[in-house]
Amino acid sequence: MLNNFDEVVNRRNTYSVKWDGGKIIKEMKLTERYDEDTIPLFLADMDLPVPQALVDALHKTVDNRIYGYSLFPDEYYHAIQNWFKKRHDWDIKREEIVYSPGTVHAINMAVRAYTEPEDGIIIQRPVYPPFTTAIEKNNRKLLNNALVCDEEGYYTIDFEDFEEKAKQPTTKMFIMCNPHNPTGRIFQVDELKKLSAICAENNVLIVADEIHGDLIRKNQTFHPIAKIVENDDHIITCTAINKTFNVAGLHCTNVIIPSFKLRNKFIRTMGYQMASPFTIAALIAVYNDGEGWLEDVKEYLDGTIKMVKEFFDEKMPKLKVAIPEGTYIMWLDFSTYGISPEEVHDRIYNKANVLLEDGSMFGEEGISHQRICIPSPRSIVKEALERIAKEFEDLV
């Protein structure tokens, strides 16, 4: 490993939502307590330094001294195409790539472009909260195909329920999260093909959020759904450098839309979008020269996840926690502790002064759970774990 991810980079006073956003976080009622001693592990945002190639590319852009309206050069599209061909054996045509300033933005645009008020949209809870917001704030009908959790914390799809919901005449869309946030599941080829077939048969559009697709465990394989089906005209896919390379602040999502008709409708709904020169330079740099860094960061994340699992197994054996197949998120089940979700929250957020995300935010299936994002130096993660364990010593 060539990168030192144990280095603690001080992110305070850098406009960081995670480390400087106490006022906003309190207003959102995520916690009553947020101070200089708070350890925030709630946001899907790494505290690990980005690739040097990215730093060099941004310095070069700064040195230009003018940051005006910018075009997408050929290198931008080639970098995307080469990355997905090399990493996932996925052939993407240049014209299929549509830039969006964010994945949540893209999902909202898809909802507005392809559905009407009161149309049904399927999601699979517990799932990333902005999926719910995109449906409800746009006056669409939420259809929950809840994932099924076994005793080991492993989640699977209820296909009978999914097909029943897809067959409803007003169902127009399925927003899929793969790798799944927060459960960490990577859906396999047979699952993806079955989902695609049901949707195609019932004229349900799939909007696939695959932005964690590069952040997977060493023994796992991620398959873009549009790559493994014969007909991808009913699929649009959100990809991004944001999670993979820790550049969420640069706002760079690329939506892959094979269908000419769907692509034009999406662009008309969203309007023309231009990226900053920093965003363009960043994507080219990381997709062309960031692969070694990615392999290093995946190895580091694997080690941190193993550390977290072993710590909880030893210090908090009642806690149910599975190693995720993908993402840098771990989904903690406190249901066996016999205390209310509110007390779990109080012990972690107010007493331990560690900021996670309450599982209820991901739907009722997440009650008694907590989501922890672990892409920080291990010293920070370990201190957070020790604080949490101390507050549950009386319940061991």
Rank of each mutant, 00 (worst) to 15 (best):
L250M: 06
I206E: 07
A208L: 10
T244E: 08
M176H: 14
K194Q: 14
E210H: 02
H251E: 14
I228A: 11
T171D: 00
T183V: 12
S196Y: 05
I256P: 12
T237P: 09
G184A: 02
N178A: 05
K243A: 13
V207K: 08
N231I: 00
A226D: 08
E230Q: 13
H251Y: 10
Q220N: 12
L215P: 06
D214P: 04
P179R: 06
P169D: 00
H212D: 09
V204C: 01
E210N: 05
A240E: 06
G249L: 09
T239L: 15
P224Q: 04
T183E: 08
A208R: 03
I186K: 04
P224W: 06
R185D: 15
H212V: 04
D214G: 04
F222E: 00
D209M: 02
I186C: 08
I216L: 01
R185H: 07
N219P: 10
P169C: 04
D190N: 13
T170F: 14
V247K: 00
K227S: 14
G213P: 02
V229S: 09
N203M: 04
F174K: 07
N254A: 11
Q220L: 12
N246Y: 08
N203S: 06
A240F: 03
I228S: 09
V247A: 00
A208N: 14
R217P: 13
F222C: 10
D214I: 03
I198C: 05
T170K: 15
F245T: 00
K243W: 10
R217N: 11
V255W: 12
H212S: 06
A226T: 06
I225N: 03
T237D: 09
T237E: 15
T170R: 13
A208S: 15
R217E: 11
I228H: 13
L205S: 01
N231G: 07
T253Y: 03
I175D: 02
A197I: 08
M176I: 09
Q220E: 15
K172Q: 00
S196H: 15
A248I: 09
C177W: 03
P169L: 06
D233Y: 08
E201I: 02
G184W: 06
T239S: 13
D214S: 11
N246C: 02
P224Y: 12
L215V: 07
M176T: 08
A226Q: 11
L215R: 01
V204M: 00
T237A: 09
N219Y: 09
E210F: 07
I216D: 02
G213R: 03
K193T: 10
R217K: 08
R185Y: 11
E201P: 03
L250K: 03
K172R: 11
E230W: 08
K227A: 14
P224E: 10
P179C: 02
S196N: 12
F245R: 00
E210V: 01
N203C: 05
K194N: 06
I241R: 10
G213W: 00
Q188M: 13
I235L: 12
I257L: 03
V189K: 13
T171I: 01
K227F: 10
Q188R: 15
C238I: 08
N231L: 04
H223C: 08
T170A: 15
D209R: 10
I175N: 05
Q168G: 00
R217Q: 15
K194C: 04
N242I: 04
H223Q: 13
N181G: 03
G184S: 05
